[in-house]
Design a protein around this nucleic acid. Structure first.
Lengths: 133, 133
DNA sequence: ATATTAATGTTATATTATTACACAGTGTTA
DNA sequence: TAACACTGTGTAATAATATAACATTAATAT
């Protein structure tokens, strides 16, 4: 194994849960994940939440806060869950990760009037997707 | 016709709960609100959630999604909970509503590459406040 | 090897939020 | 003045989301 390129090798539980989320076309909720992985030996909520926490921490998945649900990261530019933006359709609940250099740059450089410096942000846009419009 | 901000007369439960949140220096959680208003006759979670839902809907309070907590709106420019932005200190958990014309304008005009039009957004910045830095 | 850190397994419990149903007040319609 | 729609209330029960506590095992570093 080449260790110079630091890659997070997922553990068994993390891999099982990541695979499920990654294959899903929609955000998954923790207990829905639990039901889906019980046949693979993951029996308790805590096993799911621990894997989710770790996956979020290393940026493989993101949590959609307004929906308490998780999606895989498909945006190579969002490093380690530090800066996330999503669009959410209020009818069909389709969630898409937004990948916009302009937006990232604007938000990364944003400073409020107290001069507070931000290490992280999460932005959720709501509206109607093309199909639902 | 220029429709002015409609004045909502709060009902008894809504007023009790709004007053509590409005006086608070920090975001309040639903069950913490419940414990605090039980002496005023509000006994059940649902009574709290119903008032919270309405207060959010009319823009008197906002929900901090990442914290499941509620704060009063102190930003006259954020009409009816459509466009909200907050800064959250990851140490002391102080939450401040951000009121920046530039930011509002940028986000209100943001269009993603699918041309999705957004009716609403919520942005949460995380970092360290002045005191905790 | 052994110390240390990270992950696991398990039970129990805490926290957050909604469903379902009965009823009361208000204003509008007819 | 009823019939209706609409909004809010009260209450009990339950669903959905998340964490605490503790014992154990696996992986990594020195």
């Amino acid at each position: 194994m080449n260790k110079m390129h630091k890659e997070h090798t997922l553990t068994k539980n993390q891999q099982i849960i990541f695979d499920l989320i990654d294959k899903s076309s929609e955000p998954l909720k923790a207990y829905s994940i639990l039901y889906n992985v019980q046949k693979k030996g993951i029996k308790a909520p805590l096993q799911v939440y621990r894997a989710l926490d770790k996956l979020v921490e290393i940026g493989k998945i993101h949590k959609i806060e307004s929906r308490n649900a998780f999606i895989a990261c498909h945006n190579s530019s969002c490093q380690v869950a530090k800066a996330t933006a999503f669009s959410i359709c209020e009818i069909c609940e389709k969630v898409t990760e937004i990948s916009s250099a302009g937006l990232s740059k604007y938000l990364a450089n944003f400073k409020d009037k107290d001069g507070m410096k931000y290490s992280k942000y999460n932005l959720e846009f709501f509206g109607l997707c093309k199909k639902c419009r």
